[in-house]
Nucleic acid binder design. Structure first.
Length: 317
DNA sequence: CGATGTCAAGGAATC
DNA sequence: GATTCCTTGACATCG
């Protein structure tokens, strides 16, 4: 198996493929439709030799909506499709992951918010379960809101983690963010709970109060994963191009925010990271590439690695 | 068909 | 306590 598998999230831009059934409730959207879309995406991934992919956060529309019970049974209604879609994923050797929306707030002091978050996570875990995916099909979350006191936020997250369903706990992994909970914060939660950590390299550059080096953070993050599970990281490059906005009929250029993703990736930043990982003899891991050009960014990066770091090309999948 | 408003959901900043 | 932004794409509606 490749030492570093490259992946991309959700939306395919290199082909006219949908990632989920995103119709409004009035049109009766359904998980089985999302799964049909997903199978087409899997074939596209296979065609391009991509084996790592983040599925849409909302495969089963409105499935946990509190006032729309007609949507609550979608997993049972799609039991056969779930099984078949999972079988295809396994046949093609795909590693699938999920990154639920920011509405997932396990650090919230509000019981209802936490309960809704847990319900959502349980559905995602059940979808992966019914697809027959192993525990490398992880669910990535952030710590959540700060509510005035980040220490209490971390404590609430850690306490909540212990009460999660085993099926959720077996897949949940935690990512450092760019303005609230730093890598140190998620490391503290890992030490309390054992939850594996997803290092987001751009977030580390935005928020790194302890001035940890990227290689040190990478080494530490990989070490939070048990030996029988394959770690993953998030990688992106900061946007540098201006955003053109319309202000009272006139075009204005706006500077991008540092945490915004660029369309494509800085190939040399990736190459430096991989060379560092090689030199330090770190274990294999997968890299989720967060770039606006999605699959096109991945394919371009692959070519650039061949061009600028041919010694790495055979290690990158 | 193209333009425009809207979407389930939370949090934080602002007033 | 209420309002708006965050941020993103694509659906849905309207002209």
């Amino acid at each position: 198996m490749d030492q570093y598998r490259l992946g991309f999230p959700v939306k395919v831009v290199g082909a006219p493929l949908k990632a989920n059934d995103a119709r409004r409730w009035q049109s009766n959207p359904h998980l089985s439709v999302s799964l049909a879309y997903l199978r087409d995406i899997f074939l596209y991934l296979h065609t391009n030799a991509i084996q790592f992919y983040r599925v849409a956060a909302q495969l089963a529309p409105y499935v946990t909506h509190p006032t729309m019970p007609q949507f609550h049974n979608q997993l049972d209604e799609s039991a056969n499709e779930l099984q078949a879609t999972g079988q295809l994923a396994r046949q093609l050797g795909l590693r699938l992951t999920s990154h639920p929306t920011h509405y997932i707030q396990l650090s919230s002091p509000d019981e209802g918010t936490v309960a809704a978050s847990c319900a959502d996570l349980a559905i995602t875990a059940a979808i992966f379960e019914r697809m027959g995916l192993d525990h490398d099909a992880v669910i990535v979350v952030h710590v959540g809101g700060v509510y005035g006191d980040p220490v209490s936020g971390c404590e609430r997250f850690a306490r909540q983690f212990e009460t999660l369903l085993p099926a959720v706990r077996a897949r949940l992994v935690l990512e450092n963010d760019d303005h609230r909970y730093s890598f140190e914060d998620v490391l503290w939660i890992h030490e309390r709970t054992g939850v594996p950590l997803v290092l987001d390299t751009l977030h580390l550059r935005c928020l790194n109060p302890s001035r940890r080096t990227q290689l040190d953070a990478l080494t530490t993050a990989l070490g939070t994963w048990p030996p029988d599970r394959r770690p993953k990281i998030h990688f992106s490059s900061p946007r540098t191009s201006p955003r053109v906005v319309e202000r009272s009929g006139k075009e204005q250029w706006q500077a991008p925010l540092p945490h915004q993703h660029s369309d494509f990736l800085d190939p040399f930043a990736v190459i430096d990271l991989l060379r560092d990982a090689q030199a330090a003899d770190l274990r294999p891991f997968d890299i989720m590439l967060e770039a606006k050009a999605k699959d096109l960014a991945l394919l371009r990066l692959r070519e650039q690695i061949k061009q600028f770091a041919p010694e790495l090309a055979a290690l990158v999948g």
